[in-house]
Design a protein around this nucleic acid. Structure first.
Lengths: 195, 195
DNA sequence: CCTACCGATCGGTAGG
DNA sequence: CCTACCGATCGGTAGG
């Protein structure tokens, strides 16, 4: 038996911890459980991560980097609608446990200390929310979209995605493409039949 | 000093527990904290409620009754759009702590035992989700709405509401009427400018 | 990274 | 027997 490389061990911990936090929330999981799932002792866990919050925020931070990259790539598309479509597609295409981290980020962040929470929320705002707002703002400015408040519209969009950020066992039983097209049609064209 | 009537004491416990669970989630609150907030001992708490899950489910159940009533009243309206509008208005008009119970119901229900969770989820489905699906289904059948899958559309609608189910301190700083009208316009007419 | 622990606090219950 | 609790403490477990 050869021990794992430290970086690989860290990755393994993050993977198992993600799965557990997604299933039962921040306070629903003990550090002991994460250690067992990763095949190390609890003290070993504290070698890789300063404390429980540090481990939790590492998961959220890594996800935020991927979100930021997704948005950066999408901004190359020609219209607001095309940009949003690319982002929504990218989010729904993530593996279930990755998608569910967005749920953790909006929900369980409340359980970390005020200082670290404020720091993460600010980063999340800058790297993700502000970018989405800019896309909608530009869409309104160019006359592509109705003159809605981008601030409200961003939360409507993220809200529409929210139920499909589950683990995939509960919701998301529907075909991917059908959810995607229904979401985009509803968001841009509305549910009402045009007269 | 006269002791409170048992029913009043129970109401007081439910009120304080709601506030605490909303702020910090199911596992984030100890029975001791709820007891202190209600001005009784922890043992007194267990006189009124069998255990922590029983107390938690009493909160969700009472909210579900109100949701069911809201939907029943709304179903009298003449069109699917008018019915949905009345329900959305009713939900956004609730006091912040009441609104936030919807968040608890979708999120923190995962933390109760499988049997009790299954029972509550079934009741929630029958008394709320199925009713919303019926409204959309009828709307599609009567040609008011695009031929969307009611199952997906219900979750898009509830998702749009979700960000505004916070405690009111974070989101919901926007004027009520503006959120309501933006949500309904987006849901029924879409964000795109008609050509 | 482990074994061996800590101060404190967890949900729940005893007798009166 | 009942109600509406109380002070004290149970066996286990939390993060560190």
């Amino acid at each position: 038996m050869t021990a794992l490389d430290p970086a690989d061990q860290r990755e393994r911990i993050l993977e198992e911890a993600t799965r557990l936090f997604v299933a039962r929330g921040y306070h629903g999981i003990a550090m002991r459980e994460i250690a067992e799932a990763a095949g190390i002792s609890k003290a070993g866990l504290y070698y890789h991560f300063k404390d429980k919050e540090d481990l939790f925020l590492a998961i959220l931070g890594s996800n935020l980097s991927q979100l930021a990259q997704l948005v950066r790539q999408a901004r190359q598309a020609p219209s607001a609608r095309a940009q949003i479509e690319q982002i929504v597609r990218g989010l729904l295409d993530q593996p279930p446990n990755q998608r569910a981290i967005n749920r953790l980020a909006t929900h369980e962040i409340a359980h970390v200390s005020p200082e670290r929470r404020a720091a993460f929320v600010q980063l999340y705002q800058q790297q993700f929310i502000d970018q989405l707002q800019a896309i909608l703002h530009d869409g309104v400015r160019r006359g592509e979209l109705r003159p809605v408040d981008p601030h409200i519209a961003v939360w409507l969009l993220l809200g529409m995605l929210y139920p499909f950020f589950g683990t995939g066992q509960q919701r998301g039983g529907e075909p991917h493409e059908q959810v995607l097209s229904t979401l985009l049609t509803t968001l841009f064209d509305g549910l009402a039949v045009p007269e």
